[in-house]
Design a protein around this nucleic acid. Structure first.
Lengths: 220, 220
DNA sequence: ATTTGTGATGTGTGATCACAAATCATAACG
DNA sequence: CGTTATGATTTGTGATCACACATCACAAAT
């Protein structure tokens, strides 16, 4: 009898998730120095689990260990664009796999998420959260946890800059239109059209983010 | 005057590289349990740097932390095939970028590596090493350290199974022919042909590895 | 006013210790 | 003989400590 709903969240995992969220949501900005002891104190734990969590974030590419310092990874504009290119290839692959696997429940969930995003007075934070939900639910149709996690990792690398972009823009109409289009295309199993739509959506997002990046002052 | 080629390798880094090599070369087989204390003792260090190194390998996807155990990641045949699909997309992207950036030095280096692999009495370990060199040097032409590292990470996930495959086969003629073809195509800047050649090479490799995997007894 | 040397401070690194939980071996029981 | 209970052992987790080095501030010299 293997009952496995046992909760075994360790301190390390907790710190890892929290720090990851702090980085991707913009609480910790790219280029900022991180003090292991400060983090440990503010969480009320020892430095050890913080160190292990930071090592994981290092391999995720979200933080960089220097000689005697840890900083949030800072990407150049070129690097941001490259990551978007990588994201595109991975998400197109997910789209290919999803076409053959998607069912009615998937469609219904996606419609539900999209409906929540259609509120005109929606806040930026909530919109970003739902945007993440939509895309993740979308890739989830590919039925490949491995690919899903990889996309999530790459996604999170540019997520801090998405936060900067989202805070300066309040018009999500175009993005919403593209989402609707993608949903229609996957519903109709129109693969090639879905691939181009995905490319257009990501290109649009990348261009908007880069524009916001160059308009905004570079973080110190 | 900023000459700073000072070597500052930490114990953590050392352990990380060694363990990574042990996993990718097959010294530590997929599914094997890892004892943090044993590793620490065999390296003559404390458990601390070993723990941090293992956390990095966890985010790399090479080891898995259980409730009270650490094991080398064990992939199913399906998962191995999926990783090869992901590799293909990333390496095709690298090929696209490389076409516009490759110069004579790159070609010369690739030819040199290929020449070393042409020895008929070459050992499997040496061949695998040179094979890695060739592909990495190839992606290096894309001039994107970020993409290069990502490919390396994904590559290493299936590398343990490449080791199993390589140990059972002693005929590298077909792979060598495909390498030569890829080199010719990048020399002639023939992008679309290079993309299909890359696809064929990776498909061939994946099929061979999967065949060896199903033929071999699953590791306990 | 700029540069350089020196000391104080802060910070990551690595070692050691204590503990709880998982694992395993052995024995008791059906 | 197979199954379960139980105690010993192993092992990851987290805390604390000592240390070396990077960083910064201030002052003295150019």
């Amino acid at each position: 009898m293997d009952s496995l709903p046992i909760r075994v969240s360790t301190v390390n995992d907790e710190v890892y998730e929290r720090l990851r969220q702090w980085i991707t949501t913009g609480t910790l900005l790219p280029g900022m120095k991180i003090s292991i002891r400060s983090i440990a104190d503010s969480f009320g734990v020892s430095t050890m689990p913080v160190r292990e969590a930071l090592r994981r974030l290092e391999s995720d590419g979200l933080v960089v260990f220097g000689r005697r310092s840890v900083t949030v990874t800072l990407l150049s504009t070129d690097q941001v664009q490259q990551v978007f290119q990588i994201r595109l290839r991975l998400e197109q692959l997910a789209a290919e796999w999803a076409i053959d696997q998607v069912d009615e429940d998937d469609i219904a969930d996606l419609e539900s998420i999209l409906a929540k995003m259609d509120r005109p007075d929606i806040g930026v934070d909530e919109w970003r959260h739902l945007n993440q939900d939509f895309h993740r639910r979308f890739y989830d149709c590919a039925r490949s946890p491995h690919l899903l996690e990889l996309i999530r990792n790459v996604w999170d690398k540019v997520e801090p800059y998405m936060a900067i972009y989202a805070s300066t823009v309040q018009d999500f109409a175009e993005a919403q239109r593209q989402h609707s289009e993608m949903l229609e295309l996957i519903r109709g199993r129109r693969l090639s059209a879905l691939l181009t739509a995905t490319a257009e959506h990501l290109d649009y997002t990348a261009r908007t983010v880069v524009a916001a990046l160059e308009g905004a002052a570079p973080p110190k």
